[in-house]
Amino acid sequence: MKIFEVPGYAAISETGFIFLGNTGETFNLNEIGKEIYELIKKKKPYDEIVSEIMNNYDSDQLTVERDLDDFINQLKSFGLVTEK
């Protein structure tokens, strides 16, 4: 079961603005990006995130998984999440 983690130095605001305290970098997430990031922050496993997004956005599993993988890879490349 894949679980991702938000590092302690990453702070996210209600508007989806992320500040990395260790590098000073900032990022903006859109609504769904923020929703996923909050789920990761709550330590929800990958499968649960997929189901929640499928339910909330009326989308099929394949599409959600493909987009989520792409998004998580971007988050990892910027140091915004790590894989447990």
Binding site: Y9, F19, G21, N22, T23, G24, E25, T26
Partner: peptide, 21 residues
């Protein structure tokens, strides 16, 4: 410690943020 957020053409920090490193 500070990260420059905006650098002028003279290389001067015109905006910056305190960071933990």
């Amino acid at each position: 410690p500070m990260k420059k957020l905006y650098i002028t053409d003279k290389g001067k920090g015109w905006a910056g943020v305190s960071i933990q490193e």
